[in-house]
Write a protein that binds this DNA or RNA. Structure first.
Lengths: 219, 219
DNA sequence: GTCTATAACGGGATAGAC
DNA sequence: GTCTATCCCGTTATAGAC
């Protein structure tokens, strides 16, 4: 097995340590010593700590968002004729996401923890990255959900989509609150089960009758 | 208006800065200079940065958990006769939470951001705090939800409760993903609306039919 | 209880040799 | 592309005067 090059070793180590300790809690020195490279290498290859984070995020998120986009293409194509199904939209949102970090060369758990942890970092650091990575897709999801549930205002659709994001992030982060059952039978190892459970919850949440006093048309 | 004492000024300033920058991203110097106290004062009054965080969290979370406990008392008392209502349980969970940080002497937005941010901090830092603050209550919520929805396994009830926590945390954090509508009409200023929306979503999610192949009795 | 001063250490970034 | 060495600044924590 050929040895990985410096840049990749930095990415792998940084991904893991950022996931464990957060952005501010991670020192480049910890990264470079774990990656067994020189401190200066990270500045040579990435320019700054912040740019390193951005590249780590993009490397892992891009593939799953491509898969989401492919599924949305298909759903949108059919949406011209019949309203799309909420189940299918939710599946397009969840299923690629739980595969985040899969692959032989990747510590899936670290990748997922990092992706979720991002949402806890300071706004000015991550808002541009999140917008960059997820902005277009989010708009497409909301548009499709609006077609699937025309009785909901645009604003309420957006809220519910954000709730779904909250569910997914929380699950991905494996930040279960206070381990209720010590040997909780459900961790992310059983992907299918967790997706089934999330999907049931989210689909039914999205299909709830409007919570607002009727203000149709939304926006 | 009498001036606040040193300890309280530290708590207020630290709360705000922890909320903005996270634990590792906050320096005690930033705190003490914002609070206009001496650096050494924080060690005198709290002992360490970590103990300061714990005290900040407890100061704000304790009142809302007392309110939750009171509501659970009432629901549990009636649960001997008839199964409790999911709506009521969810209300007991959500309504006190969105009041987090209310009160004249408190920057509600900062308090809520901090409470949510906690979940992104390193495990070893916050897991004891979360367990301490929320462990007992979580078990009571799950037990009541299990009585309200006996067709669900214990494990599935726990998952769904965690999903509800995810929704709440995400809303409280005001970390909406990629501001879909720039002038999103819904921020936390309209508490009643946000609770109505969360409640509709969560109640319907909790009431979804079992996602697992029937494995009754759970646990 | 509050201050100054300092210990003891770690941070990101960069210049310049190789 | 990779290294060493260093700049320059910030970190928590504590000792000890007042």
């Amino acid at each position: 097995m050929r040895e990985k090059d410096t840049k990749e070793r930095i990415l792998d180590a940084a991904e893991r340590i950022f996931a464990e300790r957060g952005f501010a809690g991670t020192s480049l020195r910890a990264v470079t010593s774990a990656a067994d490279v020189n401190l200066a290498a990270v500045h040579y290859h990435f320019g700054s700590k912040e740019a390193l984070l951005q590249e780590i995020l993009h490397r892992r998120v891009a593939p799953i968002n491509q898969e989401r986009a492919k599924r949305l293409d298909r759903i949108e194509a059919r949406a011209a004729e019949e309203p799309p199904s909420v189940e299918e939209i939710v599946a397009a949102f969840l299923e690629p996401a739980v595969q985040l970090g899969d692959g032989p060369e990747s510590d899936g758990r670290a990748v997922r923890a990092l992706a979720a942890r991002i949402y806890g970092e300071p706004r000015e650091l991550v808002e541009p990255m999140i917008r960059e990575e997820f902005g277009d897709l989010s708009r497409r999801f909301v548009a499709l959900l609006g077609r699937a549930r025309p009785e909901l205002s645009r604003s309420e659709i957006e809220s519910r989509f954000q709730f779904a994001v909250g569910v997914l992030i929380f699950v991905i982060a494996e930040r279960y609150v206070s381990n209720l059952t010590p040997d909780s039978e459900l961790d992310l190892n059983d992907r299918e089960a967790i997706v089934r459970r999330m999907s049931a919850f989210i689909v039914h949440g999205l299909c709830a009758p409007p919570a607002d006093a009727r203000s149709r048309g939304g926006s």
